[in-house]
Design a protein around this nucleic acid. Structure first.
Lengths: 242, 242
DNA sequence: GAACACAAACTTGTGTACAAGAAGGTGCTC
DNA sequence: GAGCACCTTCTTGTACACAAGTTTGTGTTC
């Protein structure tokens, strides 16, 4: 089976299961609420409200909220409740840019190495496969795509860079998933990832960076188109529920 | 007077003054304790201990500690106290690398612009001065050096990149200050900053990046030498006090 | 009817009490 | 004396009570 593990201290989908402490569980739950648009950008809520809904006291709720605040998902209004941070497209654009910078730097470093790290082998096994062996499940692919980019950076060997990149990945996941709603992008992803990998293995940093950049740019463009529509319908859903 | 303001939500030296809430004050105080080696890497302590010393309850102390944990200054041992994270030189090396990557990317972007942002003018007024007008106070220079690099990144116009770079700056400040303990480095800093600025203003990205890289590398080398000695004597001081 | 003062209802910030669990010392057994 | 079980002590995790301050609605005045 494919190994994709990571220390992963902030994954919204998994942190709920291993609930070492309440605060972490609340953190995961809130994050998922935001990601699944149950809590919409701009929505206001109070600590007591969350505490009652989750059946715990305010203490762990506050701890979770402070973490989410630090990660800029929510903001506190002095003695006046909390708010899910409104969508800011410039924010995501900026994050995409930083992501590109870091990944390109990682690729450059990889090409400079004489021996390739294990991660590259793992990636080859996943992405350099015949067309018939390509996966089709959107959720799996979305997760694999994330791991492709993260593992590239991890392979470069700078843990702090990998950590920062991981944080960015977490932050843009909320809109990035939308990239995999259309099948054509799936095939394109296989092709583009494959080309990047080959360029790295052939130690050709310039083409590798260029293709990686183009690939991210393509995905970003796709997401940009979908997000507005998505947000709109989520708002309508929410109104329908009221 | 020179304007160097920044939103700056985590500066150890300033956050204590404007104590909006206790948690922030404790945060600043603890950070300063770590920076000034009153709390040494590896030192263990408890929440109650800190709370009593600062004359507050555990609640704001915990909030402050969680922030410091997230910024990887301290770590919690499950139901067994807290510890100042032991010095890890690889950690600082990695951060220096990421810093270099981000600043080089910023410089590249700056060179691509047709009009230069205001920040560049400010930096010129500080660093492109005759030798006679150079400042000599180490603390001021250390702060100005930090702002030079931060402002370069801010000038590039990507707020998220600037934020990440700012976080890194905060994290390496504890050892970076040591760079300004020797006068020769002061002169070198003036020369090197000046050269970088000129190269940017002349829209020559390659030399600009190379010089910036060399400058950071030089500073890193200097710090590397001093840190070990510094840490050693801090440990001896601490033992003498016991 | 409009504007202002006031009070009631909430909200977060902080302090405190108690619960769950880890570590280390103490006494017992062999 | 060595090893083990137990218990005390101390730690963080959580709940809850109260303080400080904001908002909002209501009543009064003009």
């Amino acid at each position: 089976m494919i190994e994709l593990s990571r220390t992963d201290s902030g994954n919204a989908s998994r942190s709920a299961t291993r609930a070492a402490n309440l605060a972490e569980r609340i953190y995961g739950q809130l994050k998922r609420d935001i990601f699944d648009f149950r809590l919409l950008p701009g929505d206001r809520f109070t600590e007591t409200e969350v505490a009652e809904r989750m059946g715990v006291s305010r203490t762990p709720v506050r701890e979770a909220l402070f973490r989410l605040q630090r990660e800029s998902y929510v903001e506190v209004l002095y003695r006046n409740g909390w708010r899910v941070r409104p969508f800011n497209f410039e924010y995501f654009e900026d994050l995409y840019d930083v992501r590109t910078i870091l990944e390109c730097a990682a690729v450059r470093r990889l090409c400079d190495r004489e021996t390739m790290p294990q991660q590259l082998e793992d990636l080859k096994r996943i992405w350099l496969v015949p067309e018939s062996a390509r996966l089709e499940d959107m959720n799996t692919l979305s997760a694999l795509d994330e791991r492709f980019h993260e593992m590239l950076v991890e392979a470069a060997g700078n843990s702090e860079m990998a950590l920062i990149h991981h944080d960015i990945t977490e932050k843009i996941r909320i809109i990035r998933r939308l990239d995999f709603t259309k099948p054509p992008r799936v095939d394109a992803t296989y092709v583009e990832h494959g080309m990047v990998l080959k360029a790295i293995l052939e130690r050709r940093p310039e083409p590798a960076q260029m293709m990686l950049k183009a690939h991210i740019e393509e995905s970003r463009r796709e997401v940009r188109k979908i997000t507005l529509h998505m947000l709109h319908s989520a708002r309508q859903d929410a109104q329908g529920r009221e």
